[in-house]
Amino acid sequence: MELKSLLQDIKQRKLKPIYFLMGEEPYYIDKISEFLGDNILTEDEKAFNQTTLYGKDVSLDEVLSTAKRFPMMAEYQVVMVKEAQDLSREILAQVDKKKNQLEAYAENPQATSILIFCYKYKKLDKRKKVYKAIAKSGVIFESKKLYDNQIPTWIRDEVKRRGYSISPKATHLLTEFLGSDLGKITNEIDKLELILNGRKEITPEIIEENIGISKDFNNFELQKAFGTKDFTKAYRIIDYFSQNQKNHPIVLTIPILYNFFSKVLLYHGLKDKSKANVASNLKVSPYFVSDYIVAANNYPMRQVSGIIATLREIDMKGKGVDAASATPTDLYKELLFKIRS
């Protein structure tokens, strides 16, 4: 079920007796369960009719026994099972030859109970009878992990939803610094929202001042320096990284550069080099297409292939393979030398 339609149904009180929230991305599981907890019962009703259980502390039998109770002076009772993945074996286990406990409950759920499972980092097999039983009487929502290339769009949409805008470079900085953890990203956007103080755009300068990400010394600027063959700037950034290895470990920098030059190689192979087609095939924002065009003009296809091979070699050395005594500073310098050659 799509997130928007799910939340809309809850708002309109088109409620189901079971909500099974599962998947690799915990952010949406937390958000939906929080929304359910906030919108089904009034504050007065919650005292007697809202129960939170934790998978590591209870059995499935206890969960279902709680769900079979009747509400007190309310239309519904809400039973929230957090960390339900700890009940994974019980949820899938058969208690007789035909079905398991949850499957049996899903076939005849308590109409006045809303049972919510927060089943993080895992998902039910769609072929299982228990999945089909829950899907028939309730809602199954799969919270999928976003791909890295989807994160910038997610950040931009989240900022827009709050009534602000964010520059492409600022989006890239947040993506690089925070990765694909939507919870972390949301927390940082919350902080930025508090300090915007009337300003409507999140800029690299605001991020540098308030989150501590340098707008000049980061992996995005390093790949851009290599792409434009500004080796003086690349050396300054590498020197900064060498002195701040805790925040800029080489094992994270190399994959970013590898991804960049892999896309430059892909660009070389495209017949249609229109901006829209390049953005679509490289899975990048149209704003950054020019960076790949410049890099492709500076590095012929054969040279790009050599750089990719070098990055693989440096990556292995950074992980201690055939270079136990090499320091990150040594490897950064070797990388610069070989790309420049």
Rank of each mutant, 00 (worst) to 15 (best):
M1D: 07
E2G: 06
K4Y: 13
S5C: 10
R13I: 09
Y19V: 00
F20H: 09
L21T: 00
E24H: 01
P26Q: 04
I29A: 03
K31V: 12
S33I: 00
E34T: 14
L36K: 03
G37H: 06
D38Q: 13
I40V: 10
E45V: 06
N49V: 04
L53I: 00
K56P: 13
D57V: 05
S59E: 11
S59G: 09
D61Y: 12
E62F: 10
V63T: 07
T66N: 12
T66M: 14
A67F: 09
K68Y: 11
F70H: 11
F70W: 11
P71F: 00
A74E: 09
Y76G: 02
D86H: 11
D86G: 06
L92C: 07
K99G: 08
L102Y: 11
N108C: 09
P109V: 05
A111E: 15
I114C: 09
L115P: 10
L115H: 10
I116E: 11
K122M: 03
A135C: 06
I140A: 04
E142L: 03
S143C: 00
Q150T: 02
T153V: 12
D157F: 00
R162D: 07
S165E: 12
P168W: 03
L173A: 06
F177P: 11
D181F: 01
G183N: 11
K184H: 05
I185L: 11
E188C: 02
L192D: 01
L194H: 15
G198D: 09
R199P: 08
P204A: 06
E205D: 15
I207S: 06
E209V: 05
G212K: 04
S214I: 02
D216R: 10
D216Q: 14
D216G: 02
F217A: 02
N219E: 14
N219H: 11
N219T: 14
E221T: 14
Q223M: 15
K224H: 15
A225H: 03
F226E: 11
T228H: 14
K229F: 03
D230L: 00
D230I: 05
D230F: 01
D230H: 03
F231R: 00
Y235A: 13
R236T: 14
I238W: 08
L252N: 15
T253V: 12
I254K: 01
P255V: 05
Y258P: 06
F260L: 02
L265C: 08
L265T: 10
S274I: 02
A276E: 15
S280I: 13
L282F: 09
Y287G: 00
F288R: 02
F288A: 00
F288K: 01
D291K: 07
A295G: 07
A295V: 08
N298V: 05
Y299H: 04
Y299T: 01
M301L: 13
R302P: 14
Q303S: 13
Q303L: 12
S305R: 15
L311Y: 06
D315Y: 07
G318R: 07
G320R: 04
D322Y: 15
S325N: 14
P328R: 07
T329C: 13
D330Q: 07
K333Q: 15
L335Q: 08
L336G: 04
R340Q: 15
